[in-house]
Design a protein around this nucleic acid. Structure first.
Length: 548
RNA sequence: GGGCCCGUAGCUCAAUUGGACAGAGCAUCAGCCUUCUAAGCUGAGGGUUACGCGUUCGAUUCGCGUCGGGCCUGCCA
């Protein structure tokens, strides 16, 4: 509808100005749904934008434009000039009834589209190394990543969910040593547990499992490799289990080590050197980031011969391009903010279009417990695990909590509040609306009043009914814009509004009554609302219960 | 010192990406269940959008500056 109208308006504008060229205007011409319902169903600012060029008042231009518009009266009730020169369009109810019919016939698929035409897309998220359980901080990235992937799937992207990890670094060596020490402790050896080892109880659990299986037969093993491998396996299983509870599954787990094994890392170094974008200094190898507009050159291989994280990261992203991904999305926490410019510069240096990589940074989650900020560190084990959080409030609440805010706002998670008020959590507002509709439909069926024939939508003429249809009708636009801007929280807000308008409708009017035709029209409206809530919640990864 | 994010109601956060009168939840107060789910609905109070200047027909949104908070800023990942 938007596109249709835009073409009409531009045609009208062209008949007024010969050399009409949209791109020549200083401000953007937009057609959008106004915030305030009184301002119509769609509105445009075109008259204001044209005013300066024309040297006429916006309102006059608006009048002229309207007189030139050729528009079908069956879908447009009224077109008016308002405010500073907005042109407001009012649709007929007939238009909305047709949209309602479409929602019902499309059902589970309503809101999905093929806009991206199968664009090969990768979403990389979580990517926590297996050194400990996922924290609440990881949770935000996990839920955001999965939901953005859902949104992209709904808009026709061919999505691969990928988890990148490194099990070869110093962190992992320390992990193995930590487990070995705890194991020795169990065999009765006196130990001195260093402060910078992993302090968490989960280390003791892993050691306990090893002890149960092997007794003290590994007592004299000085190499920690075995312990490391056991720890990695157990921790990874744990991570996957936690993600599964949030309904998150990955298509690919990509190990950094494979980039060394297949020579990719060395390739990158060679290519950079051949392009004269890498050089040796002080025994280290440097990436000449300054040649590409970077602030300073960066070390990619230390004088010890060990690469810094930048090098494999660049090799990894090169690998993503080599696998043919056309859109590459990285979801990172704010602590990684400094790393991605180097990676992008590296890709550019290798000749890839770094604009295909979208780096989405989400801000931190601050945990408040008893009114105090809990500082998070896996090493010190003073973190709240994601698992514990799910235990406390449930997966639906966790997902909704992380999705209801924009990713660049710092998030305060008050644990006491989340526990105490979990029953008043806003997610229940949405789920309750869905369950309530399910209940109404069950009741209608038991009364034999269910949808038997094509309902007469014209009977839905109450303001709240129209308002509800208008709200539902926007769902595809919302999905599309959320996907395009990578902002799931807008969908959460939208669904909250849907639920609110429905609840209001419910309290004002009876759905199932003696009036059979009216009942069946209203049941249809309920079914459409349920469809939107269900589809929306599915994208957010939140269950839509039939009963509560 | 430099970079990124943030500052909006008592608290936690929105605001269709520059639109018309800045909105929700929680908290507070007052109402609504013998009829389809009261995890709901209706109403009230609560704001100089941190502050200043600028761009614009129009600024919570863009630019510059000041103040305040978080995160980065390593030959750690």
């Amino acid at each position: 509808m938007k596109e249709f109208l835009k073409n009409k308006i531009i045609t009208a504008a062209k008949s007024l100005i010969h050399d009409f060229d949209e791109s020549s205007f200083p401000y953007k011409i937009v057609i959008e749904k106004p915030r305030i319902p009184d301002h119509g169903d769609l509105t445009t600012n075109i008259a204001m934008v044209l005013a300066k060029k024309f040297g006429k008042p916006p309102r006059t231009i608006a009048e002229d434009l309207i007189s030139k518009l050729e528009i079908d009266k069956t879908y447009f009730k009224k077109i008016e000039v308002a405010g500073a020169g907005f042109i407001n369009f009012f649709f007929t109810q007939k238009y909305f009834y047709e949209r309602l019919k479409e929602i019902i016939s499309s059902g589970d698929k309503f809101g999905s589209s093929n806009i991206a035409k199968g664009l090969k897309t990768q979403v990389e998220f979580v990517s926590a190394n297996p050194t400990g359980p996922l924290t609440v901080g990881h949770g935000r990235g996990a839920v955001l990543g999965d939901t953005i992937a859902n949104l992209l799937e709904w808009t026709g992207h061919n999505v691969t969910r990928e988890y990148y990890f490194n099990n070869a670094g110093r962190q992992m060596r320390v992990l193995g040593d930590s487990v070995r020490l705890r194991y020795l402790e169990l065999t009765g050896e006196p130990i001195d547990f260093p402060e910078d080892y992993y302090q968490g109880d989960y280390i003791k659990d892993i050691a306990q499992h090893i002890f149960e299986e092997y007794g003290d037969s590994l007592k004299n093993q000085t190499d920690s490799e075995f312990f490391k491998q056991q720890a990695e396996k157990e921790i990874f299983d744990d991570i996957k289990r936690t993600l599964k509870r949030l309904d998150i599954e990955f298509d690919v787990f990509f190990n950094e080590k494979s980039l060394y094994d297949d020579g990719s890392v060395q390739d990158v170094v060679n290519i950079l050197k051949s392009k004269n974008l890498a050089y040796e200094k002080d025994g280290a190898t440097w990436f000449k980031a300054t040649a590409l507009g970077g602030e300073a050159d960066k070390v990619i291989i230390k004088s010890t011969g060990e690469p810094t994280y930048r090098l494999p990261d660049i090799a990894y992203h090169r690998n993503k391009f080599q696998r043919g991904f056309e859109l590459i999305i990285d979801i990172l926490g704010a602590d990684h903010i400094a790393t991605y410019p180097d990676v992008l510069a590296g890709l550019k240096a290798l000749g890839y279009d770094e604009k295909k990589v979208k780096v989405l940074i989400h801000q931190f989650v601050t945990i408040l417990q008893n009114g105090e900020i809990v500082k998070m560190s896996t090493r010190k084990a003073n973190f709240i695990t994601l698992d514990e959080l799910i235990d406390e409030v449930g997966a639906d609440v966790v997902r909704y909590f992380f999705l209801m805010r924009s990713m660049d706002s710092h998030l305060n998670f008050d644990l006491n509040l989340a526990k105490n008020q979990s029953e008043e959590n806003p997610v229940y507002y949405l789920q309750y609306a869905h369950a309530r509709i399910a209940s109404i439909i069950r009741y209608a069926e038991s009364e034999g009043a269910a949808l038997k024939h094509v309902p007469n939508f014209e009977l839905l003429d109450k303001p709240e009914e129209i308002q509800l249809i208008k709200q539902l009708e926007q769902f595809p636009d919302i999905v599309e814009s959320c996907a395009q801007s990578y902002q799931p929280h807008l969908l959460a807000e939208y669904l909250h509004d849907v639920a609110g308008i429905f609840h209001k409708f419910y309290h004002l009017y009876r759905v199932v009554s003696d009036d059979k035709s009216l009942s069946s029209a209203r049941i249809a409206l309920c079914i459409a609302t349920k469809t939107i809530l269900k589809n929306g919640l599915r994208i957010l990864g939140i269950t839509a219960p039939e009963k509560m």
